[in-house]
Amino acid sequence: MGQDLIEPTEHGLYCAAGDFYIDPWRPVERAVVTHAHADHARPGSHRYYAAPSSIPLLKKRLGADTRIEPLHWQHRYRFGDCEVSLHPAGHILGSAQVRVGDGHRVWVASGDFKRGDDPSCEPFEVVPCDTFISEATFALPAYRWPAPGDTAQAIHDWWQTNAAEGRASVLFTYALGKAQRILAALRWLTPDTVYLHGAAVPLTRIYRQAGIAMAPTAPVSERDSSDGFAGELVIAPPSAHGSQWMRRFRRPSTAFASGWMRIRGNRRRRGFDRGFVLSDHADWPDLLRTFAETGAQRILTTHGRADELVAYLREQGYRASPLATAYSETGEAD
C-alpha cells in the first residue's frame, strides 16, 4: 500500500491524497474538525469542515465569521483522491469520527470518543475500517466506567443530602459536553432548576437550540445570593474552584465529575468533597470492544497512555503504534 493515508506532520494529522488536515494544531488551508474542544478545534485555519451540530459550538470557540462547511452525517464528500465522511463519535454534541477511503483502504480518525449512554449527543457509530486512529486517554484496565445512570443518581443523591443540610452543592465539570450530559440526565430525576457558572451558559444554550432536552437552568448571576444558594445545585468549570466566584455560596459541598475520579488518590489530592466517575472518553473495555468491532487490523493511538495500550494490542495480534500529536494528555480541555 505504500504510504500511510494519514500521517502526523508538524501542523497536525495530514491526508496527502485528499490534501486536508484533521484537527490541526497549527493554521492550515483545509481543516476537518472532529469536535469543538479546544485541543481539537484551534483557530487560524482558512477553511473548516465539521458536522452540522458541531458548527454553532465551533463558531462560539473560533469566532462567528469563521468559514465552516457542514459535512452531513454519513454523506461521502470528495477531497482530492479520497472520499471523506463523518460519523458520530458519541463524545460531545456534533463530535465526529472522520472516515477516509481512497478506493484501496479505509482509515478512521476517531478524535475523542465514548460508547456509554449520553442523551446529549449523537451515539457512537461503528465504522468498519482497516486502520483506526484512537485516543488513549484512559487506556488502562483500571479505567472502567460505572453505568452513567448510576452516576447521575449519585450526583442527585449528593445534592439532596446537601440540600437537607441547607448547603449549596457545587459540581465542577467541563463546561462543554460533560455539563450538558449531566443536565440531560438530571432531567429524569428532578424538575428543579440547576444554576450555571457563566462559562457554561452559552454552551448550554446552543445545546438547547439543537433540541437537546435538559433540566431547567439559569445563570448563577441572575439568582439572589442572599441565602448562599442553600439547597441548590450549581455547575461550574474546575477553574472556578477556589476563586472569588465561590464566595457567594455558604458552606458549599464541592464535587468533581471526571474519569480521573475513578482513582482514590486523585479524589483525595484534588481537595473536593466528592468525586463522581463520569467521562466522555472510552474506558478500557470500550476501547478494546471498538477496535474489535471496526475490524481494523492496525491501531494508531493519539493522546493519553499509549505505551501500555500499544504493547497490549501487539500481544493481541494487532499492528499498533503511537502517533505523535499535540492533543491534551488529560482529556481535560474545555
Binding site: L140, P141, I263, G265, E308
Partner: peptide, 27 residues
Amino acid sequence: TGLPRWLITETREHVGDLAETITLLMD
C-alpha cells in the same frame, strides 16, 4: 482477570496502591 502480568504491574504503578488496583480490576 486474564490480563498479562506486566499490565497488572503497570496498572498498579499508575493507581499507586495494590489494594485499590485489585478492587478496580475486580469490581
